[in-house]
Design a protein around this nucleic acid. Sequence first.
DNA 1: AATGAATGAGACTTCATTCAT
DNA 2: GATGAATGAAGTCTCATTCAT
Lengths: 209, 209, 209, 209
Amino acid sequence: MPATNSAQTPRTYHLHRERQRRRILGAAEKLFAEHGIDRVTMAEIVSVSGLRTSTLYQYFSRKDDIVWAILEEVLGDLAARAKEASGGANTALAKITALLELMADDLIKNQTKVRFLAQFDAMYARDWPAERLLKLEAQISPEGFQYFGRLIREGIDDGSLRADLDPELTMHAVMNAVAGAQRRLASLGSRVELEYGHPIDKLFRALWR
Amino acid sequence: MPATNSAQTPRTYHLHRERQRRRILGAAEKLFAEHGIDRVTMAEIVSVSGLRTSTLYQYFSRKDDIVWAILEEVLGDLAARAKEASGGANTALAKITALLELMADDLIKNQTKVRFLAQFDAMYARDWPAERLLKLEAQISPEGFQYFGRLIREGIDDGSLRADLDPELTMHAVMNAVAGAQRRLASLGSRVELEYGHPIDKLFRALWR
Amino acid sequence: MPATNSAQTPRTYHLHRERQRRRILGAAEKLFAEHGIDRVTMAEIVSVSGLRTSTLYQYFSRKDDIVWAILEEVLGDLAARAKEASGGANTALAKITALLELMADDLIKNQTKVRFLAQFDAMYARDWPAERLLKLEAQISPEGFQYFGRLIREGIDDGSLRADLDPELTMHAVMNAVAGAQRRLASLGSRVELEYGHPIDKLFRALWR
Amino acid sequence: MPATNSAQTPRTYHLHRERQRRRILGAAEKLFAEHGIDRVTMAEIVSVSGLRTSTLYQYFSRKDDIVWAILEEVLGDLAARAKEASGGANTALAKITALLELMADDLIKNQTKVRFLAQFDAMYARDWPAERLLKLEAQISPEGFQYFGRLIREGIDDGSLRADLDPELTMHAVMNAVAGAQRRLASLGSRVELEYGHPIDKLFRALWR
DNA sequence: AATGAATGAGACTTCATTCAT
DNA sequence: GATGAATGAAGTCTCATTCAT
């Protein structure tokens, strides 16, 4: 055997594995967003991803594992993009605006991901192991939160915000409201557009523009 | 049998039916909030409500009917209380504040109901027959919305709000954000309190106080 | 409704339930003896008992429950017959002989039951909840053991048995050997007859006759 | 490559193969004794033996092959030790006692092997190809059996045993009882010790001491 | 010889709902 | 109106084994 072979084979294996994994997660994410996590069966994921049942179980040994994997992916991806988006901004306000714009974009471009998060908030977040969740959230939260807290303090200092505000509390309250607003819009989706006559990202952007 | 009886029996009968119905809905609402609508089985509702399976089916002939009945009840109840709460207020701002306070109170006092709505938003709202939903929502929305639209217009007139705001759009955007914030807090429940160190209604009230 | 009806209906229900239960246990016992407990599938039990899968699960909600039920039945039945068989005997020796004869008879007449016990000894007894097993065994053991212990003591007194025997120990040792012998013969079944040229009960009876 | 190598390589190869084989059988024997043959999966054997699934299949192409291999090993080993143990004894009685002591020792020192045989008796012996089994048993049985038959005949001659005994029948009956007793004790294992208050080999030895 | 990947067949169990009295 | 029994249709997951390199 040539020396390169002994090094390449594992790499090929790994590549293949990663590709298969992606197929499964892609199929699952789509189905979850469309029909609701609990209503999607393994058989459907199998069918859409094009593998066989037993093959799929070699990648994820229980349905929950798929949900976790998607959650990790979605949050990780969001964290990365948030960091990148706020990188170009100088002031705290600019950074936050960048984050908000990102969330608005996601409403259109990554609606399935936001919808997934909405379902997760509504149905799983309370029951699932706290440590695991905290570890995941740690990846994403700090950036935006830091900036936002700073922004509030600045606002209080320059008099544009009431002096009796608790920066921490306000920050969490607003962040929750923003996340709740975004996820609700993603969940209701086209229903909102029909009833309100506006695309959902416009309804979201109206909050700060 | 005496003539009076023929009038009383239907009444007792009706009372009994109503009581049974309440037992079922009460059990279901509690279970739905605790474990998630899709994860609650008819058998569990049967077990908690204390009836037998086949008896339950005399009241609700499918699981969805129970979900609808709870939705109707929750929204109807909310509408009634909203009307009452805003009745004592004079200005649009006062009326809206009253509505927000009501929503904050519900976070503590009717958490299961809010949680139910959160799940409904996240998982059912998109799929379910639009007409039926619209009819239900019609009961509740107008009040708060009207006031709010008026408030925005006042703000624009007196210069405290930017003149280029679209009152309709702003109204819907804010209403969505408020609902999203409230429901997200209810969904995450005690998890939020542990992480943020504040009771959830305080996080909600921080949005306007 | 006639008064008798309100009393009879439950009785009919109960009778029916009992009959169905028997069908299931009968089918399972037979299959277990033939193919080995672990190799029998629920589908096979369903098929032989003539019910539908979901109906069977209304009677036994897991496979283990069937195994337990059979164990209870077999041991209970054995206890009853042992009591009856030893009832007519006067001396301890006669009582024990009656018990041994019963065990020999079972080798022919209740071979499936003995085979079931053999499998249970070999594969389950070590793992299963001790309390539950002890409770079951309490139903059957005392009789034979008591007699046997007394017999040993008599033998020691009259000099026909060595004085240094520990009656308790001897009793358990012999009882284990007898049970082991019986169950092994039932397990090997016709194989023994072919190889040794004797029916299995004869090989068992040779131990004391 | 030097000429010596072409001779040595096969030898190392063979050694390696033998070692791998031993790892597999060792892992399987342990697992079989602990959880029951039917309940042990190939995956578990793979995991404990430290190989990969597909490697294991290069050594044993089906699960049954592993069971047979262990049976062969256990019986062969027993035969060898029995021959050795009885070698030093002169009388038939001494030889048999040596065999019994060996079986008692095995209860402690080779409990997994005895347990394996117990399961084999209870679950496989009836179904498996007779010829193959007979061939295996031929390795071990003759010794002890011969001695035992002779012993019985001596006993009849000197009047210490009843004259109407059939030596063959008695021999098989007792041998079965002894094997049944030993295997039952191994199967029940610590359960027996807890209930009876004696180590299992003591209960076994009480049969002849 | 070793291994990563794949897989057919099937196991157990659940559940919403209907039927018959 | 209440209830015990029944059940079709699925759902999740497992396992021994094979294939291809």
